[in-house]
Design a protein around this nucleic acid. Structure first.
Lengths: 235, 235
DNA sequence: GATCAACGTCAATGGCGTTGGCATAAGGAG
DNA sequence: CTCCTTATGCCAACGCCATTGACGTTGATC
């Protein structure tokens, strides 16, 4: 894509920026994550990132091929945080549940990053390590390779899907969330029974809907289904 | 947001564009949908939409508050298409499965709209109608109201979650999709067994499965779980 | 102390959404 | 038939964006 040089390591740091900052890949990713957390998805632009680093927009391109490359680096940083300190317990179901919740939690802590990165495959060290771990848990539990891969994909897809949904909801600007609440109160709660009998009959229950994530429930369903498969294999 | 007048109906049409086109809200939404389908997510811009209408970018703003408003209109149009011709079969499980796949399919046909709207509640007619339908199926099946609402929310959340995930993947620019495929081929398929034994052992299976959506499987799990609840109610 | 790669900065390009102002035409009023 | 109002199409412009090429400066190496 780009023709500029993209150093792959932080081995050498030279000139500080105008404000005396010394740049590294790690520092840039950290700053980008902080900007995402504090100012939302739209708050991260090359210009503003450069500014926050005490530098210039184009400086970012000395370290990353482009915003795309930066975003993948951010995603991998998230995976790294999610997997830090993880150790298998020997109970594959508990292990998988824990891993799923960790991924989900990491993404929720950085909703904007989740929305931007969860549909990408980075191939970077932390993500690869996490895949290796998940497959290891499944194969260690006794699943044949084909089943392990099938469950691995279902697990990853489900975790990412709910991460994006929950993160997108969290990441909505206040105005949008208020507008949505208003729609529930003013539209759904007031539909006449003649035209919308089912919504009218359940309106109080509908509107009182909780903000809980459906992910843990879905995860448990997946694990139960997998456990049934494993019993079938053993038998 | 914007100060310009936004007519809410197509009651009056006056001047045709330079190319003789007469504009309406409906025509603009249709054209936008066609552009999304033919040229992808990046293909829909105010400028190009105006051009495709035989008009000018700013003309779009005579009909919609902004691109955001247009996207919500597109989303509701999608719900309309998804639910068109739907009739209950009397088998609630088959009905729900069909509805879920329709919603999923509609979003996949227009990923950009899905990503932008799936975490929002528009309150527009087609979306409300779809909610009424889903609740009708559940209540008709004999679920008590509280269960119906719970299952309704789980169903919607899961459908939206996977819709966003799958749509986000589809909505990626060609360059990003190619980069992801390259990662699978060049990184995952070539990891040495010494450092990543589990990925190396399952690499062919892993790479082969990367395109399928996990949604239908997850949907079936949800329906099984709901059916168990219903049996418990009947007993 | 000369060379060279790394890298910060400047200026520019072409895209985007959006807006104010202006010109024009359709409908209504007289 | 004329005049006025209003909806609307279009133009030019604004400020934002990512990205790039050229330029100059620095630190490390020999």
């Amino acid at each position: 894509m780009a023709k500029r040089v993209v150093p792959e390591s932080d081995r050498r740091r030279r000139r500080p920026t105008k404000q005396g900052q010394v740049l590294t890949h790690g520092l840039i990713v950290e700053t980008a994550l902080r900007m995402l957390r504090e100012h939302g998805a739209d708050g991260l632009t090359a210009r503003r990132l450069g500014l926050a680093l005490g530098a210039d927009a184009s400086t970012v391109y000395r370290y990353f091929r482009g915003m795309d490359d930066l975003i993948l680096a951010i995603a991998d940083e998230l995976f790294g945080h999610a997997m830090a300190d993880w150790r298998p317990t020997g109970d594959w179901r508990a292990d998988l549940r824990d891993l799923g919740l960790r991924i989900h939690h990491a993404y929720l802590a950085h909703p904007q990053a989740a929305v931007l990165t969860a549909s990408r495959v980075t191939g970077r060290p932390n993500e690869v390590a996490s895949d290796e771990t998940i497959l290891g848990v499944l194969r260690g539990a006794g699943f044949p390779d084909a089943d392990a891969v099938r469950i691995y994909h279902a697990f990853i897809d489900q975790s990412l899907a709910f991460a994006i949904l929950d993160a997108a909801t969290l990441a909505l600007p206040k105005t949008a969330r208020e507008a949505d609440e208003e729609v529930w109160r003013d539209t759904y709660a007031r539909l006449p029974a003649e035209t919308h009998p089912n919504i009218a009959a359940t309106a109080p229950l509908l509107v009182a809907r909780m903000n809980d994530s459906a992910y843990p429930t879905a995860l448990d369903m997946l694990l139960s289904s997998a456990a049934a498969q494993l019993r079938a294999v053993d038998a």
